[in-house]
Nucleic acid binder design. Structure first.
Length: 825
RNA sequence: GGGCGGGUGGUGGAAUUGGUAUACACGUAGGACUUAAAAUCCUAUGACCGUAAGGUUGUGAGGGUUCAAGUCCCUCCCCGCCCACCA
């Protein structure tokens, strides 16, 4: 009988209870067994899981279950990235406490994950908002502080007016807050930073080791870290002792520099104009630029604005005095905050120079257009050419001149060869409540003092008014703020900012190795055994943020001697988005499908199977309820095969011939081969499932009747193989069927993955195609050991071939063994 | 502007890496079972011409290499994602 929705619910609940009662997926570090660590990017506990989660975790679960059947000791943990603003917003809205709200969501999420039947080691479940977890955030922070990697500095920072907090560079997307999409503004504040820039060289270099990451993720990180080779050139300010340093990657154009531009925030600007006629105008310009939002200033199509500050700089290579400008297109954060402008060979400088009628000089000749002059240029020439108007370097190809001029300038002390990074230090202070308190104390006498290790954790106070009115909520809690200085014991003040939540997720994969260790951040030997994560799975949106931070933390913890690996994630899979009606499924679009509803109608196995079958894991997935129906039908069909196999009164329909046994055996072996391949050669689960279906079709066609009762074992074996191959994809139904087949193993999850026999894949006769002049004209049946002469004879005697090709007319006779014959006439 | 992916039936997607394009599924049509419907099963299904046998054509467009191209080379068009006044 086909099963019903009710049956499937019972089956799934029963096996979920079984796994729980038997702790089927609990693992311990065991150095005698090969390990495999599968990890999905843990969720923010919003309460309900969405289809994106389901897809992410299903992919991970299938891999975990396959590896278990392959005999690996598989670590597959889950937890909750539980700090963050939504809890505060919910607290304001519902007049609850962020902690209560979050823990309620976690419970709900936990139950939903259980209903999906994921193979987690639930003993390792953790939440970053637990004091037993964030205590170690504080511990890491202090370790970083002790090594000068956590420091406080005053600077112009990204500020989201809506979230009322500062943001890291990585959290500003196109000038907007990554969370609420509000335009980010700049503010001068004193904040805590992590010195990720110290690791920039190894973060860049080690990308090479990540061969099993998608190349685009590596490319994105490489661009973000942004290493540029160039020269820092010293321009002396005329009639002054000041020097302006500019950074350029184009030293070959130095003879074409016709002015210098400083960023409005550059400290020399105010210094150089103080007391001059241009002072007022310059200050007004700086003020005007500061009021522009970052997104506006950073967009390339913006009209460039600037102002001459009344001073000149000396180009060291030719002693020319060139005007100094302040311009909004120069950014203080990059390079030295000052540039030399070569309008003829840089498009931005060209636009600026045209606008302000500034002089230009061509120094690189376009080989295709050697007579071009400054007057008839309509854009900068940025391609290769030979140098002109460049003194002793004339006629040098510019690529060669880059190196020559750089070395020459260094020798003459006009500048120094240097490398600049685009990566900035990581601003981690947040003026929010629901996060890890930064474990620092300010003492009037002793300065900034870290909280002693034995006093950790610095716990978040429970009773706090969350008003959303701005400022750190913790600053209003007197009992939290007021403390004694750990050094001198006098009254002191606690830091009231909390850490960015990306801090929490930068090392959770290590905590999973010994999730509830009360003595240490994690057990070193356990981490040694489990790390690195063999397969990490998550969304592409974390290509830079989380993945870069996690790599940084791993490198830092390696330097502390706590971990042995220098990269945390060996292999990365970025799953595609889930779409509905061509658009990303999201709450704001209102086009979501609730996994819970699908679950109650079809069960977890059907949902899992559909999601895996509809598209390869990395591609977008278009939601299709008809496809869901198809997955349901397939599982039902397999279930009935197992059922019928046990009722002797019924026979499987179909045909039986002498070839049928061999065909069934071949299809069985082929399915094992192809499904195994799909796991071992880049997770193509959609084709893996298609091969399950092919095997099911073959079983359906095979018939047991009085003629071959003795062959029952072949059928049994084929069905058994089908059940085993289905187990990672549809674990509940597979368990049920395994039990129905009277197997003694308690759980199919630990049964060895089937092997295949390459010999059984061979057929006694093969069908090959015969092409004449590139067109297929016949299908002929031959034996695999057929000789070339014989093959030729068979081909030409085929009526379909003979119609187009006679022996006499043959120019070429090409044989592709076991595939086809191509005849040219 | 730079980087990375893509473009295959009515739909989701296959194609052993140069070897019979469209596996598997969805959808659709016809049939069986049924009083009927659902479910299930069977058959057909790229397009065009043809009663049929069969033929022609077909992987974004155009050209090339080859006995043979979805796959390799050149030119171009379109779509998606990421980055971007980065000096």
């Amino acid at each position: 009988m086909p099963y019903t929705t009710n049956d499937i619910r019972n089956i799934e609940t029963r096996w979920q209870k079984f796994w729980e009662a038997h702790r089927t997926f609990h693992v311990e570090a065991d150095p005698s067994a090969p390990k495999y660590y599968v990890l999905e990017m843990f969720p923010y506990p919003s309460g309900k899981i969405h289809m994106g989660h389901v897809r992410n975790y299903t992919i991970a679960d299938v891999i975990a279950r396959y590896k278990m059947m392959r005999g690996f000791n598989v670590l597959h943990p889950i937890g909750y990235d539980a700090f963050g603003q939504p809890a505060e917003n919910a607290a304001i809205k519902n007049k609850t406490n962020p902690a209560d709200w979050t823990y309620r969501c976690i419970t709900q999420m936990h139950d939903e994950l259980k209903k999906m039947g994921f193979s987690y080691d639930w003993d390792r479940e953790l939440s970053t908002c637990d004091a037993e977890y964030y205590k170690w955030n504080q511990w890491i922070f202090i370790k970083m502080f002790e090594r000068g990697l956590a420091y406080k500095k005053a600077s112009s920072v990204n500020w989201c007016p809506d979230c009322e907090t500062t943001l890291a560079n990585e959290e500003v997307i196109n000038g907007l807050c990554w969370r609420c999409k509000t335009a980010v503004v700049q503010k001068d504040l004193e904040q805590w930073y992590l010195k990720i820039t110290q690791y920039a060289p190894s973060l860049l270099e080690d990308l090479k080791k990540l061969e099993q990451w998608p190349s685009r993720v590596r490319a994105m990180q490489e661009n973000w870290i942004g290493k540029s080779y160039g020269v820092e050139i010293h321009f002396k300010v005329k009639d002054s002792t000041e020097t302006i340093n500019v950074f350029t990657t184009r030293p070959d154009t130095i003879f074409g520099a016709t002015y210098v531009v400083l960023a409005p925030e550059h400290p020399l600007v105010k210094k150089m104009t103080a007391g001059t006629a241009q002072e007022k105008e310059t200050l007004e310009f700086i003020e005007k630029t500061a009021n522009k939002s970052k997104s506006l200033r950073m967009s390339g199509d913006q009209r460039k604005e600037g102002i001459f500050i009344g001073r000149h700089a000396i180009n060291p290579v030719n002693n020319e005095a060139i005007p100094i400008f302040v311009g909004d297109y120069v950014l203080m954060e990059y390079g030295t905050g000052a540039i030399m402008a070569v309008p003829t060979h840089d498009q931005r400088d060209f636009e600026f120079a045209q606008q302000y009628k500034l002089p230009m000089r061509i120094v690189i000749q376009d080989p295709k257009n050697p007579s071009v002059s400054v007057e008839n240029m309509n854009e900068a020439y940025i391609d290769e050419g030979v140098l002109i108007n460049s003194g002793e370097f004339d006629k040098t190809p510019n690529e060669e001149a880059k190196k020559k001029i750089a070395e020459w300038m260094q020798l003459k002390r006009f500048g120094k060869i240097s490398i600049h990074w685009r990566l900035r230090d990581w601003l981690i202070s947040r003026q929010r409540y629901w996060g890890t308190p930064i474990p620092m104390i300010y003492c009037a006498a002793c300065g900034v003092v870290p909280v002693p290790y034995h006093q950790l954790p610095v716990e978040l106070p429970k009773d706090v008014q969350i008003t959303g009115e701005g400022g750190s909520p913790l600053a209003r809690v007197r009992t939290f703020v007021e403390c004694a200085c750990p050094k001198c014991g006098k009254p002191a003040r606690r830091e009231t900012d909390t850490m960015a939540t990306f801090f929490d997720s930068s090392w959770y994969f290590l905590r999973f190795c010994s999730a509830h260790n009360a003595q240490e951040i994690f057990d070193k030997s356990e981490a040694q055994y489990w790390m690195p994560v063999d397969q990490y799975i998550g969304g592409i949106e974390h290509a830079i943020l989380h993945l870069l931070y996690a790599r940084f933390f791993t490198k830092f913890l390696k330097d502390l001697g706590l971990v042995a690996c220098d990269e945390p994630f060996t292999r990365l899979l970025t799953q595609g988005m889930v779409l509905k009606d061509g658009e990303v499924m999201s709450k704001s679009r209102g086009n979501t499908v609730d996994p819970d509803e699908v679950l109650s109608q079809y069960g977890a196995d059907t949902l899992r199977l559909f999601i895996l079958f509809a598209a390869p894991p990395e591609d977008q997935l278009e939601w299709n309820s008809d496809g869901l129906e198809g997955a349901w039908r397939f599982l039902n069909r397999v279930y009935q095969m197992v059922e019928k196999r046990h009722s002797k009164s019924q026979t499987l329909k179909g045909f039986h011939s002498d070839d049928a046994d061999a065909t069934l055996e071949r299809e069985r072996n082929n399915a094992v081969k192809r499904v195994t391949q799909s796991f071992e050669e880049g997770y193509k689960f959609n084709t893996a499932i298609s091969h399950l279906m092919v095997l099911a079709n073959a079983i359906d066609k095979y018939k047991i009747d009085s003629a071959n009762l003795g062959k029952q074992h072949l059928l049994n074996q084929a069905i058994e193989t089908l059940v085993l191959l289905s187990a990672p994809f549809a674990p509940h139904v597979a368990e049920e069927m395994w039990q129905m087949m009277g197997k003694t193993e308690a759980t199919v999850a630990r049964v060895a993955w089937p092997d295949f026999d390459e010999k059984a894949l061979k057929t006694s006769t093969i069908v090959i195609a015969v092409q004449v002049n590139g067109r297929v004209r016949a299908q002929i049946q031959i034996t695999p050991d057929c000789s070339p002469e014989e093959l030729r004879k068979i081909c030409l005697s085929d009526p379909g071939v003979a119609k187009y090709a006679q022996e006499a007319a043959i120019k070429k006779f090409i044989v592709v063994p076991n595939k086809l014959v191509s005849i040219v006439v």
